[in-house]
Amino acid sequence: MHQKSQSRMSRALTPLIWIGPAVILIAVVVIWPVVVMIQSSFQKISRFGVVQGGNGFDNYTKLFDEPDFGGVMFRSLIWVVAVVVLTVVLSLALAQLFNQKFPLKRVARWALIAPWAASVLMTAIIFKWMLDPEAGLVNMILVDLGLLDALGGAEADPLGKASTAMPWLVFVAVFVSLPFTTYALLAGLATIPSDVYEAAKMDGARKLRVYWSITLPLLRPALTVAALINVMNVFNNFPIIWAMTHGQPGYSTATSTIFMFILKGTDIGESAAMSVVNFGMVIVLTAVFLKVSRWNTEVAR
């Protein structure tokens, strides 16, 4: 009897040998930093990182009283929605295109990988150089086309004003997000059986009807995963905005992640509070997205 009990316990503990390292890694890399982050948000910390004692909710009170806090959070939401929606829509079109047969299809697919393979920071810096008001390629093209005067004259600076800087930041974010999203949707398209399309063709369904009633529903699992990963990546994106504008002028192009980094230079406790708010907002956005996308609803085949 004792041997049977030991045998059952041994079988129950065997999976821990395989999942144990992963659990430890998650605990050390994910859970522990979150615990420290939350703890730090209730402490008074000097600019040099020395904990000077508890600070209650003062860090959060100070954060919410920041005059730019509301604008930064609203801008963060617009940033995520704009980049993710544009990325998904364009990726759907590109995935459908690359799923067809055409000359140099393989070369075109390889070319699509380039923005993804390159460093995001390097890509952002290249675009910043291109948008330089004096020697940037964009200004040179505008001069050649005679359009520069209409955009502000010889000192036109696309990154110097929020009204022009934010669209360019969104463009760069979409540019670097397209390859992954397109390939994720291509993988989803590859799982759709061809006989479904053949049956729809025999029934006389038009291409638009087939895409809307067959392709999109069967593509939903891949679309959900790709969009969800984009939501989390875009919300936490730092290199693009920091490299191109530093959140300036003022905080007019700063998102919550940039705002958090700026606060770190003056008040680490307040920055930790901003980190907790960021973490909570990511969870809320993810939950809302999963609710809206009905990710766990079975797709009818």
Results as ranks from 00 to 15, higher is better:
residue 4 K to C: 12
residue 8 R to C: 04
residue 8 R to F: 14
residue 9 M to S: 03
residue 11 R to I: 11
residue 13 L to W: 14
residue 14 T to V: 05
residue 18 W to T: 07
residue 18 W to A: 14
residue 21 P to V: 07
residue 22 A to I: 01
residue 24 I to M: 03
residue 27 A to E: 03
residue 28 V to F: 15
residue 29 V to Q: 15
residue 33 P to W: 10
residue 33 P to D: 09
residue 35 V to T: 09
residue 36 V to P: 06
residue 36 V to T: 11
residue 36 V to F: 08
residue 37 M to E: 02
residue 41 S to G: 06
residue 41 S to H: 07
residue 41 S to R: 07
residue 42 F to H: 04
residue 42 F to M: 06
residue 43 Q to L: 11
residue 51 V to A: 12
residue 53 G to S: 11
residue 55 N to P: 06
residue 59 N to I: 05
residue 59 N to V: 02
residue 63 L to N: 15
residue 66 E to D: 15
residue 68 D to H: 15
residue 70 G to E: 01
residue 70 G to C: 02
residue 77 L to V: 14
residue 81 V to S: 00
residue 83 V to E: 03
residue 83 V to T: 05
residue 94 L to M: 10
residue 94 L to Q: 10
residue 94 L to K: 14
residue 95 A to C: 08
residue 96 Q to F: 01
residue 97 L to K: 03
residue 99 N to K: 04
residue 103 P to S: 04
residue 109 R to F: 04
residue 109 R to V: 10
residue 109 R to W: 12
residue 110 W to C: 10
residue 111 A to G: 13
residue 114 A to K: 06
residue 116 W to N: 12
residue 117 A to F: 08
residue 118 A to N: 13
residue 118 A to Q: 13
residue 119 S to W: 12
residue 121 L to I: 01
residue 123 T to E: 13
residue 128 K to D: 08
residue 129 W to N: 07
residue 129 W to C: 11
residue 130 M to L: 15
residue 131 L to E: 08
residue 133 P to T: 07
residue 134 E to T: 15
residue 135 A to Q: 04
residue 143 V to C: 13
residue 143 V to M: 15
residue 145 L to V: 04
residue 146 G to D: 14
residue 148 L to H: 04
residue 148 L to Q: 10
residue 152 G to Q: 06
residue 152 G to S: 02
residue 154 A to I: 04
residue 157 D to N: 12
residue 157 D to V: 00
residue 158 P to C: 08
residue 159 L to I: 09
residue 161 K to S: 12
residue 162 A to F: 09
residue 163 S to W: 00
residue 169 L to N: 07
residue 172 V to Q: 10
residue 172 V to N: 08
residue 173 A to R: 04
residue 175 F to T: 00
residue 177 S to D: 03
residue 178 L to V: 05
residue 180 F to K: 10
residue 180 F to W: 02
residue 181 T to W: 05
residue 182 T to K: 02
residue 183 Y to P: 01
residue 183 Y to Q: 04
residue 187 A to D: 01
residue 188 G to L: 01
residue 188 G to W: 00
residue 188 G to V: 01
residue 193 P to D: 04
residue 193 P to W: 06
residue 193 P to T: 01
residue 195 D to A: 14
residue 196 V to Q: 08
residue 196 V to F: 09
residue 201 K to V: 12
residue 204 G to I: 11
residue 208 L to Q: 07
residue 208 L to A: 15
residue 211 Y to H: 05
residue 216 L to I: 12
residue 217 P to S: 08
residue 219 L to T: 11
residue 219 L to N: 07
residue 222 A to W: 14
residue 226 A to D: 00
residue 228 L to F: 14
residue 228 L to Y: 15
residue 228 L to S: 13
residue 230 N to S: 14
residue 230 N to H: 14
residue 234 V to I: 11
residue 238 F to Y: 11
residue 240 I to V: 14
residue 241 I to S: 00
residue 244 M to C: 14
residue 245 T to W: 15
residue 256 S to A: 12
residue 257 T to F: 03
residue 258 I to W: 01
residue 264 K to A: 01
residue 264 K to F: 03
residue 266 T to S: 09
residue 268 I to D: 04
residue 269 G to T: 00
residue 271 S to H: 01
residue 271 S to P: 02
residue 273 A to F: 03
residue 274 M to K: 01
residue 275 S to H: 00
residue 278 N to I: 10
residue 280 G to K: 02
residue 281 M to T: 03
residue 282 V to W: 08
residue 284 V to M: 02
residue 285 L to P: 02
residue 285 L to N: 03
residue 285 L to E: 07
residue 286 T to M: 00
residue 290 L to W: 12
residue 290 L to N: 02
residue 291 K to A: 12
residue 295 W to L: 00
residue 299 V to S: 06
